[in-house]
Amino acid sequence: MPFQPIKFYQTGSFVVGNRLLSEDQRSVQSSQARTNSLTLGHRACQGCGEALGARYALDAAMRATDNQMVVANATGCLEVFTTPFPETSWQIPWIHSLFGNSAAVGTGIAAALRSKGRQDIRVVAQAGDGGTVDIGFGPLSGMFERNDDVLFICYDNEAYMNTGVQRSGATPPAARTATTDAVGPHPGEDFGKGKNLPLIAMAHEIPYVATATVAELRDLEYKVEKAMSFHGARYIHVLVPCPLGWGSAPSDTIRLSRMAKETGLFPVFEAEGGEVTSVSNIRHQLPVEEYLRPQRRYQHLFRPQPDTETIGRIQAIADKNISRFGLLNGEPK
């Protein structure tokens, strides 16, 4: 297990904090002294998974770097809802340049710090899925290949939400977006498309790659902290539900993240040097249908009657992940 939950303490380490654990065993988020890298007054939608994921990840990174950190951010929701003039919600050194270049900006910052002998200051570059898997892919791959000392975090909400929910290379099959509408004989995104960036990152054989969700804070914090223990290129891919784009209840953001993992649709694992080193086991396995049903982007799979064939194809994706990564027994195939 990437993060070994602490057991037998009522809630163990599943919850954010736990008064029964010693201070050093508690999460960064449970601390009154957490950075709040992303603070009050930002303009994210209600229940925004990305706002949550960013604060989780960056606060953990701030803790891990003793607050010696700078962040480069791609264009997208996270940039727009945090820095509309004249207000910013960031409390850390932060720069937004362009949509497709956050990895390269990160590289530049890292190079600058290296030239100045300030490698104690660490660099995080971040983007949504569009800024990662699509428009930002070239610079990201370059950053990986050069093994630049940057942690890149992708907040994956599986479409271009900022521009009104268009399809990205991370949009899952059958999902309705504004450019893969739920019309025609094959409504929603086609099967057989899309790219798996964590695996592509691994193919670069960079020191560290991990996936995480906003449902398992401790696992996410552990991975950020671990990523910060390496120098060189590192990649963390965080699933962050988007109530707007997914058509889900704002209150369901964490629940859906949890279900994405528990169905096997979003495998949670970590890899070092291109090899999977551990996976997060499914704790209470769920059929994909339970994950799909609460999301309006999949409602065509259930109305007017359940499209069992398509749901079955999605289940097959989950099953393949389960077998490929060994999500039920921790043994990757």
């Binding site: 809630t11 919850v15 008064r19 999460s27 988020q29 449970s30 009154q32 009050l40 998974g49």
Partner: peptide, 18 residues
């Protein structure tokens, strides 16, 4: 409440005061 900090942690809007 048993002070598990979940509300404090999961609020995307930092609107829970511990």
């Amino acid at each position: 409440c048993f002070e598990c900090d979940n509300c404090y942690g999961v609020c995307p809007d930092n609107s829970v005061i511990k």
